[in-house]
Amino acid sequence: MLPSNSSKRYLRPSVFWSIRQPFPNGLGVALVVFALAFPLAIWSALSYGGIVESIFLPTPTAVLQAGRTMLFEDNLLFDIWSSCYRVLLGFGLAAAIGVPMGIAMGTFQSMERLFSPIVGTVRYMPVAAFVPLIILWAGLGELARILIIFLGIVFYNAIMVADTVKFIPNELFSVAYTLGANRVDVLSRVILPGIVPGIIDTLRVNVAGAWNFLVISELIAADNGLGFRVVQAQRFLQTDKVLFAIAVIGLIGLLTDFSFKLLSHWLTPWAESSRY
């Protein structure tokens, strides 16, 4: 039995816990600063206070000094470029194939029946298990590393884009056909404009996975790259260099995420109010 209007308990208005309401910029900046400062404070307390040994958790100062050494003595900038190049090619190829495949799967039942068994099966297989086969197929060069990133992302792109297409209401298709549209018109004027925000979100989410697969790819006879630096520093217990290389990957990921947000704001300004 539903409660009567007189017995309902109304919540007080709240800025902090408002649901999809405008949020004060000043409070938003304060929350961002707190989110970054709090873990840094815990890290500083544990490391500078000697609670955790430096081999397990070096101080922020030691990490910055290690980063300076890597930048000016170990040619870290070249490693950054090499990793970005591999991610760009592998992820770009996965987008070029996965996005059209997802559109086809979400639009045509025939394409869903054709690709779903492959996509649904292979995307659960760990990419690391394919490394011996990839070495046999592509050797130990750049092609093998790019192929690992590609295989790790392409099927996720396809399935997420297909789900985005399926969220378009069928009523829109009925209206389009009633107004005289054909299948090409529905695809180009209803489906494609409607899924652009979802495609950008899909790429924005999956590019993080590309950086995760980068470390696996750079285990294959690589002599440069951020993943290679992480593994090399780990072998010599250089935790400060490991943390700095990880922080660089995180910073690149943050800039990439911000770039996708700018792209979304530029291409789909009508979707901003419902997404952010």
Rank of each mutant, 00 (worst) to 15 (best):
G253K: 05
R189I: 00
A245H: 03
I195A: 10
D223F: 13
L254N: 10
T202M: 03
I249C: 06
L192M: 06
L203Y: 06
A210S: 15
I252F: 03
V207E: 01
I252E: 14
N182H: 09
F244C: 09
S217V: 01
L243E: 09
L251P: 02
N182Y: 12
D201T: 10
L192N: 02
R189T: 10
V184W: 10
V215R: 06
R183G: 03
E218C: 13
L237V: 14
V230Y: 01
G250H: 08
E218R: 04
I200L: 12
Q232Y: 11
A247V: 14
I191L: 15
N206F: 00
P197V: 01
Q234A: 08
G227W: 00
T202R: 02
I199T: 06
I195S: 02
D223I: 15
I249Q: 05
G253Q: 10
V205E: 01
I220E: 13
L192W: 09
I249G: 05
V230W: 10
A208T: 15
F228D: 05
K241W: 06
I252Y: 10
V190D: 01
G253D: 08
Q232V: 12
Q238L: 13
I200V: 11
V184Q: 09
S217R: 00
I200G: 08
N206E: 09
V196K: 01
D185K: 00
N224E: 15
L237M: 15
T239L: 10
D223S: 15
A245W: 00
L219Y: 12
R235P: 05
L254D: 03
T239G: 08
V190N: 00
L243C: 02
N212Y: 03
T239K: 13
D201Q: 14
D240E: 12
R235Y: 02
I216S: 05
N224S: 15
Q232K: 15
L251E: 01
N206Q: 15
V231G: 02
G209W: 15
V196T: 04
I200K: 06
I220D: 14
I246V: 15
I191N: 07
G194A: 07
A222D: 10
L192I: 13
R235H: 12
I252S: 02
G225Y: 09
P197A: 07
S188Y: 07
L254S: 13
R189V: 04
I191P: 02
F244T: 03
A222G: 06
V248K: 07
V248W: 02
D201E: 11
G253F: 10
V248Y: 04
G225R: 07
R229D: 04
A233N: 14
I220P: 12
I199K: 03
P193F: 02
Q234F: 05
N224L: 10
A181E: 00
R204F: 04
A208G: 14
R204A: 04
G209Q: 04
A208K: 14
R189N: 09
G227N: 04
I195R: 01
A208M: 12
V205Q: 06
Q238Y: 04
A181H: 07
L243T: 07
V184G: 06
A208N: 14
L203C: 11
L203H: 02
L187S: 08
A210M: 03
I220G: 05
L254Y: 09
G227L: 08
V205W: 00
G194V: 01
N212C: 12
V196L: 11
D185Q: 09
L254G: 05
L187N: 03
R183A: 08
L192Y: 04
Q238W: 13
